[in-house]
């Protein structure tokens, strides 16, 4: 008799999807935060006045 355990399979597939998607999202979010931080660092390093590009 084939046991009726499809619920377990569904749960496993959902959990798997959630873990991988959440992790991928976390990488992208962390990367965005670092890019913003980097942009702020670059902005504060350069004086705000319009200078001919020498660097």
């Amino acid at each position: 008799m084939t046991p009726d355990n499809g619920g377990f399979a569904t749960a496993a597939y959902i959990i798997t999807a959630i873990v991988y998607l959440a992790y991928a999202l976390s990488i992208k979010l962390r990367e965005r935060r670092i890019r913003e931080h980097l942009a702020r660092l670059d902005a504060s390093a350069r004086p705000p006045s319009s200078r001919p590009t020498g660097a």
């Binding site: 084939t2 046991p3 009726d4 355990n5 499809g6 377990f8 399979a9 496993a12 597939y13 798997t16």
Partner: peptide
């Protein structure tokens, strides 16, 4: 679906 183990056997494909 695997007859003896049921649908849960499919967990193996991701596990």
């Amino acid at each position: 679906i695997e007859a003896r183990q049921g649908a849960a056997q499919k967990i193996l494909y991701v596990h």
